[in-house]
Amino acid sequence: MGIAEAIVQGVLLGGLYAIFAAGLSLVFGVMRLVNIAHGDFIVLAAYIALMVVSLTGLHPFASLLIVVPLMALIGYGLQRFVLERTLGEDLLPPILVTFGCAVIIQNALSALFSTDAQRLSAGSIETDSLQVAGLSIGVLPLLTFAIAVAIIAALEFVFFRSRIGRAFRATSDDPETAQIVGVSTKHVFGLAMALSFGVMAIAAVLLAARSSFDPFSGPARLIYGFEAVIIGGLGNLWGTLAGGIVLGIAQTLGAQISPSFQILAGHLVFFVVLALKPRGLFPRMD
């Protein structure tokens, strides 16, 4: 594989990372909460999709009609019944609670499904590719990237143009005054988490159609999403997409040097950005 092809692949991979990152970023933006189990919930969603597909025979993409609402419901419930009690001045409880969720999901999934690698079969789209200017571009990665752009555009619209987006921002600014104005901040937090979980479900199906996964695949997804957020700059969703692309390119170029260097190259770029531009490559102007 040539350098040009590696870069194109990296860009497209970045789209997937941006989807991992979008939900993480949204929740942090609204309630300053980092869901350590973000990646594990993505893996949970992948297993749910697997079950839906094997029970109904639906195409994996069609299974999203069930998996997205189901995950959104889980997210809303998690926020209202568990995380809500832990939000406050102290950062520790929500981190530790989501960390606990991560450990529980990993071990529960391996008890239920064994630690064997699983995969969602999406049919011929997995291997189809287009020839553009002498480069071979996979249809699935291209579709993933297009979905990433669509998700980020949609989230931007929701956040900056819609009624619930205004409530998100107001609650993030000043929860007490938001309540006086009539916003139920607990419900708003629940909705933010539901939205984040819905996006996770999409990420899960795209991930599972692209590569195999097992109960312990979650932490790496959290880390890639997190790196995309920090590289791109906090509070800027398009920046997060750019961050994902930078990370994706770093990984595919790293893999060119040596397969064992793929992930490491991404981490190193993350630390270089942190050292040189601690607010990320595209910090929000304000």
């Binding site: 205004r166 921002r169 107001a170 993030s172 600014d173 000043d174 007490e176 005054t177 938001a178």
Partner: peptide, 8 residues
């Protein structure tokens, strides 16, 4: 203190 939402 007015408490306007600064992101809005």
């Amino acid at each position: 203190g007015r408490k306007l939402f600064r992101s809005l």
